[in-house]
């Protein structure tokens, strides 16, 4: 049921939206933990001269500075962009804005809910997610400058 090979674009959208939602949520949890470590906890804000914070900062930066985490961030960038824009498509669908109107059934006609407008937003979300990948690759690895 998870891999929707025989189903329509909307089912792919559903599967991607679920996977990206779960992964981005997990990322946010790890991100908060990592950022908390990065600043060394609340004590660094009131224990001058902040040597502990500086040492911790360098240690974590060294740990995170490798291609594996960079690729991970690029993937997260793709997921966040896709999830956000595709979520907008779903919100619009909740209000019936991007869908066709009910009518008499025409043989072989696609369902009105599979309207070209809402499908276009899906492809826009994919395109913006690809843009986010390019932007992330450039920001982290300078691919456009190379």
């Amino acid at each position: 049921m998870l891999f929707p090979s025989r189903y329509s674009l909307e089912r792919w959208s559903y599967t991607l939206q679920r996977i990206t939602g779960v992964v981005v949520t997990l990322y946010f949890v790890l991100h908060v933990i990592e950022t908390g470590n990065f600043v060394g906890g609340p004590s660094v804000w009131y224990v001058p001269p902040y040597d502990y914070a500086r040492a911790y900062y360098e240690e974590i930066r060294e740990f995170l500075h490798n291609p594996v985490f960079d690729v991970g961030l690029v993937i997260i960038g793709w997921m966040v962009a896709f999830h956000a824009v595709n979520g907008l498509r779903l919100t619009l669908a909740h209000f019936g804005i991007t869908l066709g109107r009910p009518s008499r059934v025409e043989p072989e006609a696609p369902p009105r809910s599979f309207s070209p407008f809402q499908r276009a937003i899906f492809w826009i979300s994919i395109a913006l997610a690809v843009f986010a990948v390019v932007y992330s690759l450039n920001a982290l690895m300078g691919v456009l400058a190379a």
Binding site: P4, Y7, Y14, P102, V105, P111, S113
Partner: peptide, 16 residues
Amino acid sequence: CHFAGSCSQVCPKGVD
């Protein structure tokens, strides 16, 4: 409902 649309795809009567 997460609007997977599979229901509308498989409906043999075009109910959507």
